[in-house]
Simulated assay, not measured.
Amino acid sequence: MAGTAAALSLTLTACGSSSMPGTDHGAMPSTSSSRSASPSMGDMPGMSRTADGNGLSDIQDGYRLTPKNATLPSGKQAAYRFTVTGPGGKPVTGFALDQTERMHFYAIRSDLTGFQHIHPTMTPDGTWTASLASLTPGAWRTFASFTPDSGRGKGRDFVLSRTVTVPGNATNAPLPAPATSAEVDGYTVTVKGEAMAGMAHPLIVTVSKDGKPVTDLHPYLDAYAHLTAFHEGDQAFAHLHPTTRVTGDTGGPDLAFHAELPTSGSWRLFLQFQTGGKLHTAALTLHVG
């Protein structure tokens, strides 16, 4: 697969290290992926599952994302609280495990900066709390990725989202220019593959350090790396599923992903991998034709 892959036009820029704000994964376990969704009505893997849709609705097939927050403070940690209600209107409290978690929660700013990936905690009444790191002023979108383990949606992957405002003087950052590799926390991440809108293609990520292949990637969320993408402009969501199987306590340097991005344009990819108990996050800008 790597031998037939063509170089991608990508931008990879460091987004922090193991201590990067918003990459706390020590909370309650959850599920990810998306299915068909309509435009936002709220204002917004298992390896055997596939994702479709864009995650830009707060309701789908009777399941609704209902946040407790309309705004969040800037410059300090904040708690974002929400419930997922089912077709009967009651909060859902039963969620299936996927990639070791029962809920994956994401926050992304409108200019695709400030990425945070959190595993929130749930109280018995179905209220989830996501502890967000410091946010900058602007418009943000929050995503809840889950799979009910009972009811009409049992076994189905949902991604629902809403927008939230962080008051203050907002300045948008331009999307970085394309590149095929970048440094993150002393590691070099190189990406090869090809991407066409609406078509499935393999994506190969290689991790090296000081010119040598990295083979001590520790399993993270039932894989050696986690990859999420957001579309420039509308912040549409896509989860790129890992196809490299976890066969031991360490892996690398090559990681394969199933890449199927539904629309053309620029996508911001966030690759997360773990070494020595530390989580590293790199951001990738991918132009999809």
Rank of each mutant, 00 (worst) to 15 (best):
G3R: 14
G3A: 15
L8F: 06
L10R: 05
L10N: 05
A14W: 06
S19L: 13
G22H: 08
D24M: 06
G26T: 09
G26C: 06
A27C: 10
P29N: 10
T31W: 14
S32T: 02
S32K: 09
S33D: 12
S36W: 06
A37P: 00
A37H: 05
S40K: 02
S40R: 06
S40F: 05
M44C: 12
G46V: 15
T50Y: 13
G53H: 15
L56C: 08
L56D: 12
S57C: 12
S57I: 03
D61P: 02
L65M: 08
T71M: 07
L72W: 08
L72M: 13
G75K: 13
A79C: 01
A79K: 15
R81K: 13
R81E: 12
T83C: 04
T85F: 05
G88C: 00
P91T: 08
T93C: 08
G94P: 05
D98T: 13
Y106V: 15
I108W: 01
I108G: 01
D111K: 11
T121N: 14
M122S: 04
P124M: 04
T129A: 12
A130L: 04
S134V: 05
L135I: 02
T136L: 14
A139E: 10
R141H: 11
T142W: 05
A144E: 07
A144D: 10
T147A: 12
P148L: 09
P148I: 11
D149K: 07
D149N: 14
S150V: 02
G153W: 02
R156Q: 15
L160D: 01
T165G: 00
V166T: 03
A170I: 06
A170T: 07
A170Y: 02
A173G: 02
A173R: 14
P174I: 02
L175F: 07
A177G: 13
P178R: 06
A182E: 09
A182H: 10
T188W: 09
V189W: 12
T190Q: 15
K192W: 07
G193I: 05
A197Q: 05
M199C: 00
H201L: 00
V205A: 13
T206V: 10
S208H: 03
S208G: 04
K212D: 11
T215I: 11
D222Q: 11
A223T: 08
Y224Q: 02
L227N: 06
F230L: 03
H239S: 12
H239K: 09
T244L: 04
T244A: 06
R245L: 11
T250V: 11
L255S: 03
A256I: 08
H258P: 00
S264I: 00
G265S: 01
L271A: 06
Q272H: 12
T275F: 00
K278N: 11
L279G: 09
T285K: 03
G289K: 05
